[in-house]
């Protein structure tokens, strides 16, 4: 497998490969998100307790899941970048971080907009929301660190180290927050989302999760291609690419 993978450690090859993959992800994102949104907003029945406000679930849960998935992707990329000293992997870390941060932000805002009618408050120090907020802080730290270095190779390595430190810390943070919130408010929170969900509500949710996943991949690929272009801007193949049209 290594032999097969190796050519893709070259910038140009992976630029071309990602260019080939990108339309597929964009297509998958558009189709699944249209199906998921129409189904979720128009056809899924209203929740018997929460009425139509539950429809926020179709963006809240996928965004939260993909925010976590983005971090896992980054951690894998960071590990590869540090252990095998592959620059492209560090670039993928830098490419994923802003996407993950935006998804975390979406999860937080939609969680607040859902919480207001359900809990009566925009913000409740619920374990999941709190750890999502801390995840956003960590994302911002990684992005800030990456942008602070003018040498992007060093920036990639520094961001990779911080990502790995964060991945060791995240489970600890999560469990400490869960523990803390059960101690402080416990049963006062009405749990939602977790209980059994009717299949006609679940299907659009699954489709939306696929949509957000594909969107995460598409955006990461686009940003990854940008990173490659920046760092290889002196290479002849980039010059040829720029003059040869918009491919």
């Amino acid at each position: 497998m290594w032999k097969w993978l190796h050519p893709y450690a070259k910038a140009q090859k992976s630029y071309q490969l990602s260019g080939k993959l990108l339309p597929w992800f964009v297509g998958l994102t558009t189709t699944t998100s249209i199906i998921g949104l129409v189904w979720g907003l128009l056809f899924a029945p209203p929740d018997y307790q929460q009425g139509d406000s539950f429809r926020i679930i179709y963006i809240h849960v996928p965004a939260a899941m993909m925010a976590m998935a983005a971090y896992v992707m980054m951690a894998i990329g960071a590990f590869i970048a540090l252990v095998w000293q592959i620059r492209l992997a560090a670039m993928s870390v830098a490419a994923t971080a802003p996407v993950g941060a935006v998804f975390t932000f979406i999860a937080l805002v939609t969680g607040a907009a859902w919480g207001k009618p359900m809990w009566g408050a925009w913000w409740v120090w619920d374990a999941r929301l709190t750890s999502e907020l801390i995840l956003l802080f960590i994302y911002m730290g990684i992005i800030g660190l990456y942008n602070a270095f003018s040498d992007k190779v060093l920036a990639g390595r520094a961001a990779s180290i911080l990502t790995l430190v964060g991945v060791i810390n995240l489970p600890i943070i999560h469990y400490s927050v869960v523990w803390w919130s059960t101690l402080h408010q416990g049963a006062t929170i009405i749990k939602f989302g977790k209980p059994l969900i009717a299949p006609e509500m679940l299907w659009p949710l699954l489709i939306m999760i696929v949509a957000f996943g594909a969107f995460l991949c598409a955006l990461t690929l686009m940003r990854f291609r940008n990173e490659i272009l920046i760092r290889e801007s002196h290479r002849p193949w980039v010059c040829a690419l720029v003059t040869g049209g918009d491919k």
């Binding site: 801390i134 802080f137 960590i138 730290g141 800030g144 911080l162 964060g166 943070i173 400490s176």
Partner: peptide, 12 residues
């Protein structure tokens, strides 16, 4: 930047 990096990690 240091505080931005370190404070979230020290929450637990």
């Amino acid at each position: 930047l240091l505080s931005l990096i370190m404070l979230p990690l020290s929450i637990p």
